[in-house]
Write a protein that binds this DNA or RNA. Structure first.
Lengths: 136, 136
DNA sequence: GTATTTGCAAATGATTTGCAGTGCT
DNA sequence: AGCACTGCAAATCATTTGCAAATAC
């Protein structure tokens, strides 16, 4: 019901393809276009890549989704809910949320830069605990 | 002399194309592949796009350059010197450095996440002072 | 019923690759 | 001399577009 409302509020039609996209992103947290395509194809094989692209663009523009771009990696998408940052592992590619105070950071940067800021993309790169353990 | 040393230290050969790339990035601060290609073509018309791509990859891998990826925009490149963040204007596309304490932020995130972090990509999106003035 | 959305196929755009020739060191 | 680098052309990969048929409301 939640996603239906999100779509209707923005005058976007509730189609099975759209619901499938939102459901997968909800399950996986962060997902690339290619992964999304494969996941959805499993139970909805007629879905085309073009439709995925069109919807991703639309859902990002309308603010339901957010694009995550890490240097050196392909972009992923997530639900645009609370403001948070990300940590990403160089070794295994894992991407996780990290809850730091982005609002305070943003306020500080507005004062420093004179920009009127509305969002933050912050990604920390390094090695995850699991990959650290492996290299011992 | 500075760039020559940076290259030699990493056992990369000092070629005119490489020097041109580093020089342009030094001048412009942040530049896209396409802009770089156009700038270099002006005084060095034989330079190919393939060479630019190969060198950008090499220079990023070796740590001389850094890739900047903002959600919704094409990637740009900068010299990998002091750790800093960026602010970007939605309206005019301008990208600027902002000097916040990235080291403290990174340390905090290491403690919170258990990741062993080595770099940060932080981009704040909003409206620059000039574009704010225009909308009055 | 009408406007939006979908899927296909083709077009476009971005990046990579193979290889022969050139140029650093 | 020997290996790294360049430039070209072709290949590959990513994304967008046009349009007719399908579908949400």
């Amino acid at each position: 019901m939640y996603f239906e409302n999100e779509l209707k509020t923005r005058r976007l039609k509730v189609t099975p393809q759209r619901m499938a996209i939102l459901k997968e992103i909800d399950i996986y947290g962060h997902i690339s276009i290619e992964e999304l395509y494969e996941k959805i194809r499993v139970y909805y094989p007629s879905t085309s890549l073009a439709t995925i692209y069109k919807n991703i663009t639309l859902l990002c523009d309308s603010g339901i989704l957010r694009e995550i771009k890490a240097p050196g990696y392909k972009q992923k998408y997530e639900l645009n809910q609370s403001k948070h940052a990300h940590v990403m592992c160089d070794k295994c590619g894992k991407l996780e949320d990290i809850h730091i105070d982005c609002v305070a950071l943003q306020t500080h940067c507005m004062q420093t830069s004179g920009y009127n800021l509305h969002s933050v993309s912050a990604i920390f790169m390094g090695t995850c605990p699991a990959c650290q353990a492996l290299s011992h």
